[in-house]
């Protein structure tokens, strides 16, 4: 597919999404769509570190929590307007990411994953036990919603931000930095041997992905109006990983598709209750074995085959 056709496809997707509040009469689906768009931001961030750089981070939900709590708490204690706290949330998250990224990135591969998972556990334990600040497991309710809680308005806010963050991810991916990140995924030692300080780029990807998560967290808090530590546990970090894998890692469209899947799929399976976990796990295993390139990868392959045939005929 050439560049202009691709932009046209993105425009169409954007337009279709923008019409959702008018089309969806059952507001439950609008509610899920807002969550899915928040997860688009989350997954785009996860994709930068996981898909492009090749480092599986399991602290995404923890950073989402830091974003959610910082936006909420700054608003509560300093009476900042919502837009200001939302803008501050990714910055606070970035500070935490710098502090955790440095030790985490000293190890590679699976061990990086485990260390980040430990950080997610630590974040939850601190959120639960530092009650003076976070109100502990009880959580914080009545977090202010913008525009008097209008769901339609919030949908458009989240849609704009999801589109902007997707565009930013595409920019990063196509830049020189993106190329180096991809090179790190292919062969980190080689990158080091040609005199590039790989650690700087890894830390950059890690911090940027944390900022994405922080923004998603702030959007979540002001949408649901309630947060507690449980929402930001390891299970949600795994969802972010799942979104990237299912959609297609290292692509821009992948996280968008993956985010909608991880929000809507469990809702579709809500009837299945305890089979849900088994089914979910099975999908993950089968998808990785048989479809490691994700849905976007499969589509690209199909389109490629199709257009080749057309050219031949």
């Amino acid at each position: 597919m050439n560049r202009s056709l691709q932009s046209l496809a993105w425009l169409l997707v954007f337009a279709a999404l923008a019409m959702l509040p008018q089309v969806l009469t059952v507001k439950y689906y609008l509610h899920l769509s807002i969550l899915a768009l928040i997860w688009v931001i989350m997954a785009q961030g996860q994709n930068l570190i996981q898909g492009y750089t090749g480092y599986v981070s399991i602290v995404g939900a923890g950073f989402m929590g830091i974003g959610a709590y910082s936006s909420t708490l700054i608003g509560m204690h300093f009476q900042w307007p919502i837009w200001a706290t939302m803008a501050a949330a990714p910055l606070v998250t970035a500070l935490f990411a710098l502090a955790t990224g440095y030790p985490s990135l000293r190890v590679k591969g699976h061990y990086f994953a485990i260390v980040t998972l430990a950080f997610n556990l630590i974040i939850v334990i601190v959120l639960v036990n530092y009650k003076e600040l976070t109100n502990g497991e009880t959580g914080i309710s009545n977090i202010p919603k913008p525009w008097g809680g209008s769901r339609d308005a919030y949908f458009y806010l989240v849609l704009m931000l999801a589109a902007a963050m997707t565009a930013l991810a595409a920019l990063i991916a196509r830049s020189r930095v993106g190329e180096i990140l991809l090179a790190i995924r292919q062969n980190e030692d080689l990158v080091g041997s040609i005199g590039i300080a790989a650690w700087k780029y890894k830390l950059f990807a890690f911090v940027i992905s944390a900022m994405y998560a922080g923004l998603a967290g702030a959007l979540y808090a002001h949408f649901q109006s309630f947060i507690n530590p449980e929402i930001f546990g390891v299970a949600q970090s795994l969802d972010a990983i799942l979104a990237v894998i299912l959609g297609g890692s290292g692509t821009i469209a992948g996280p968008v598709i993956g985010a909608f899947l991880v929000v809507f799929l469990p809702e579709m399976l809500r009837f299945a209750d305890s089979f849900r976990l088994i089914l979910y796990g099975l999908i993950l295993v089968l998808a990785t074995i048989f479809m490691p390139i994700g849905i976007v990868g499969v589509c690209k392959a199909l389109i490629g085959r199709f257009s080749r045939k057309e050219a031949a005929s």
């Binding site: 059952v26 439950y28 649901q224 449980e230 809500r270």
Partner: peptide, 21 residues
């Protein structure tokens, strides 16, 4: 009856589904 797994997000989704859908 919908499962909310005692999780805040799941509970919100379950109740939205009950009320809206």
């Amino acid at each position: 009856a919908y499962d909310d797994k005692a999780n805040p997000t799941e509970a919100t989704n379950a109740v939205r589904k009950l009320i809206d859908r």
